[in-house]
Amino acid sequence: MRRRAQALTALPLLTAILFLMQPSPAQAACNGLAGCSCTVTATGISFGNYNPLSPTATDATGTINVHCDLLVALAGSYTIDISAGSSGSFAPRTLRRGAAALNYNLYTNAARTQIWGNGTGGSVNVTRTVLALLVFNDSVTVYGRIPAGQNVAAGAGYLDTLTVTVTY
């Protein structure tokens, strides 16, 4: 079992959740095969502006992408975990700006009913199947939500740092 960790930063106001990926390739889904090369990249989740007076939650999405160049056919799976971040809890995660905190979370599904974590504390992780001959591409959507009705000071700079771990 191999693990690959990546940093994830969340910024809700006028900015985005950013997946900060290391420049070196991850070996996700390769399972030690010679000649197999993989990279993990992600797009940010842009929440835009959060309005504390809005009765509606602020939702957004991003993606985690896994791309592998394979020399032989491969069948197996890999798992993606996302850490709890600075809150130390999956429910809720918090974006912080000094002493101020803004609750948010990341989910595995569009209904936003399954909190994406590591399988503990009420969270679930995502396991994906790999079936490939020469090239493997997989894109996984990350669903974000800031609940409505939070009384927080206006301004950018609320952030959280999370770790995305790919296990194969």
Score class of each variant (00 low, 15 high):
96 R>F: 04
98 G>Y: 01
105 N>Y: 00
107 Y>E: 07
113 T>V: 11
97 R>C: 11
96 R>E: 11
88 G>P: 11
75 A>I: 10
114 Q>I: 08
78 Y>I: 03
73 A>F: 11
103 N>W: 04
76 G>W: 00
76 G>E: 05
78 Y>H: 06
82 I>P: 09
105 N>V: 01
114 Q>H: 07
72 V>M: 06
75 A>P: 07
91 A>I: 13
73 A>V: 10
97 R>K: 15
110 A>W: 06
67 H>F: 11
76 G>F: 02
96 R>I: 07
94 T>H: 13
90 F>H: 03
79 T>A: 13
101 A>F: 00
90 F>E: 07
82 I>E: 09
78 Y>Q: 05
98 G>I: 05
111 A>V: 05
109 N>H: 05
90 F>N: 05
88 G>F: 05
89 S>V: 10
90 F>C: 01
84 A>P: 14
98 G>P: 06
102 L>W: 00
115 I>G: 04
110 A>F: 04
112 R>Y: 04
87 S>Q: 08
109 N>V: 04
70 L>F: 06
79 T>D: 12
70 L>Q: 00
87 S>W: 03
93 R>A: 09
105 N>D: 12
95 L>S: 12
68 C>D: 10
66 V>G: 09
98 G>S: 08
88 G>I: 02
69 D>A: 15
81 D>L: 11
94 T>S: 14
89 S>L: 15
82 I>S: 08
87 S>H: 05
104 Y>P: 05
114 Q>E: 14
105 N>T: 02
110 A>G: 14
66 V>E: 13
110 A>R: 11
86 S>W: 01
87 S>Y: 03
115 I>T: 08
79 T>S: 11
